[in-house]
Design a protein around this nucleic acid. Structure first.
Length: 493
RNA sequence: GGGGCGUUAGCUCAGUCGGUAGAGCACGUGACUUUUAAUCACGGGGUCCCGGGUUCGAACCCCGGACGCCUCACCA
């Protein structure tokens, strides 16, 4: 996108003028004393305004000379003195620019700079009369000329579409956006550290797969020319991670992208980040322990608190989290006799409660609709929902005391499913049967090679899958997934 | 896919029963040696998202389209 406006033309004029004075408009590497926050830390004296009793703020006997680089984000020209704000990825500092401190011509050249330009400076730290740590510039150089104007300095970039399409402008001008992504990065980093501390190994498995397995979602399809075959972008890494359990990796995780060819709304992006964890010789309970250890760890390290404002409420991630069975939740809502009703009676009761369902549905489906529409969204504080009907989780084992229920939890936060955790199915006969039910007529969709792997013996295991984008949303109090993804999917213009 | 709302200067936003558009920031010129959303004076800057229609006249009303936002539906 090229915009031929007069501002751009002016900036190009300034670029040419600087070039004529010997400044390289798109300069080269610049050695800094450190980033701006490190430079600020070099000042160990008081930072306070001058007073009549103390007209000269305290400072060192010998000047602290520094080199700094950054983008000029504001400029207050007082005539013989210019105050400019220099910012880098970690902080900002004020520059005090006055011709008497600089070589001949450097001050006049400085006036040719525009907001958004990258410069490198050399100077001494001092505190201004109004009490701001600043750098008295003794020389400067141009590092990169900005031809386009940055967004408005006070309101930042507000247009939602531009913020997503030109994320760099959003990051440049909206501090809260930078903060949110810094938190996301820290959250992901702390998750890795926590799991590595527990002895887990991070692995990478195929994102292009011949069968899109491990979940039931529509995949993106592509064609691999060399082998002349159809490939699918993965919808889950699960079946490959389990192969690793067969192979002898006992504690593995993968933290990377899945792709699902489905709708796009405030909680769905077609590519999204998932953490999957598998522990040989573990089960649902060991997965629960990881959740109850990892989430407080991340909260403490990244947020410094376990309480987060979300919507109108406040989430409390202090463990232990509530654990309640699926059946109990349904009974609490629909009455103790709910599971004694036949499908017809259940249909009538559900309809009366405002749940839109079909009279031909089974009791199971009606119950699930009730859970989906009336119950899940009311579970605000972190909750493990256990003993879910087995039909909905074909990759899990059943409960030892009840073969109709899966030995799993659904970890629900703020009314949304954040993380399922399973006692994984390792019986190849049961797994094949569950796949067959799921596949229906489309038998070719079954990943036979995975079943074969199970036949070599997969240890009993626990597994879980945590939606990282949604997790970041909850920890940062964000309600739109696009605000936690640097480059969210948008329609092409 | 249905419904609602939005799109005006580089950015943030006003605006009008239908009479060819304004402010702040930014930009240009001038003043100013401790400012920090600097201040003061003057000035330049617009295909009012795109295409049709109604009208003497449309940024505004009508129809169609693009993109975005919200919402419902779909969705393991």
């Amino acid at each position: 996108m090229i915009s031929e406006n007069e501002y751009r033309a002016q900036r190009i004029e300034n670029l040419k003028a600087l070039e004529k004075l010997g400044y390289e408009p798109f300069g080269s590497a610049f050695v800094r004393t450190g980033d701006i926050s490190a430079i600020r830390a070099l000042w160990t004296y008081p930072i306070e305004p001058a007073t009549p009793e103390k007209p000269h703020p305290e400072g060192p006997a010998e000047p602290i000379t520094v080199s700094a680089a950054g983008r000029m984000m504001a400029c207050r020209n007082m005539g013989k003195t210019i105050f400019a704000d220099l910012r880098d990825g970690n902080g900002r500092v004020q520059l005090f620019v006055n011709g008497k401190n600089m070589p001949e011509g450097a001050f006049d050249a400085f006036k040719l700079l525009d907001l958004g330009d990258h410069i490198g400076i050399k100077g001494d730290l001092f505190v201004t009369r109004t009490g701001e740590l600043s750098i008295r510039v003794t020389n400067w150089t141009l590092l990169s000329k900005a031809i386009m104007q940055p967004p408005e300095k006070f309101h930042g970039l507000q247009d939602t579409e531009d913020r997503y399409r030109m994320r760099y402008l959003d990051l440049m001008s909206n501090q809260e956006s930078r903060d949110r992504f810094n938190k996301r990065i820290a959250i992901v980093s702390e998750i890795r550290k926590y799991l590595e501390g527990l002895g887990y190994q991070e692995v990478e498995t195929p994102m292009m797969q011949p069968h899109a397995g491990g979940a039931a979602a529509r995949p993106f399809t592509t064609h691999y020319n060399a082998l002349d075959c159809t490939m699918y972008m993965r919808i889950a890494p699960e079946l490959y991670l389990k192969r690793l359990l067969v192979g002898g990796f006992d504690k593995v995780f993968e933290l990377n992208r899945d792709f699902r060819n489905e709708g796009l709304d405030r909680t769905h992006n077609p590519e999204f980040t998932v953490l999957e964890i598998y522990e040989a010789y573990g089960d649902r309970t060991s997965m629960k322990n990881i959740i109850e250890g990892m989430i407080p760890h991340v909260c403490d390290k990244v947020l410094g608190t376990r309480k987060v404002k979300y919507g109108d409420g406040e989430l409390d991630f202090t463990p232990p989290y509530r654990e309640v069975s699926y059946h109990q939740l349904v009974k609490d809502k629909m009455g103790e006799d709910w599971f004694d009703l036949d499908a017809k009676a259940a249909y009538e009761k559900a309809t009366a409660a405002g749940v839109d369902c079909d009279p031909n549905w089974s009791h199971l489906l009606i119950t699930h609709e009730v859970y989906d529409k009336l119950i899940e969204k009311t579970l605000f504080q972190p909750t493990f929902v256990t003993r879910v009907p087995h039909e909905f989780v074909p990759l899990a084992k059943t409960c030892p005391d009840d073969p109709t229920l899966a030995d799993v939890f659904e970890f629900v936060v703020a009314g949304k499913e954040l993380c399922p955790g399973y006692t994984e199915q390792n019986n190849p006969f049961n797994q094949r049967e569950a796949f067959a039910v799921q596949a229906g007529d489309e038998v070719e969709k079954i990943d036979e090679e995975f079943i074969t792997a199970l036949e070599y013996g997969m240890p009993p295991a626990g597994g879980l899958g945590l939606g990282i984008d949604r997790f970041v949303m909850m920890l940062t109090g964000t309600e739109v997934i696009r605000d936690v993804i640097l480059f969210p999917q948008l329609k092409q213009r």
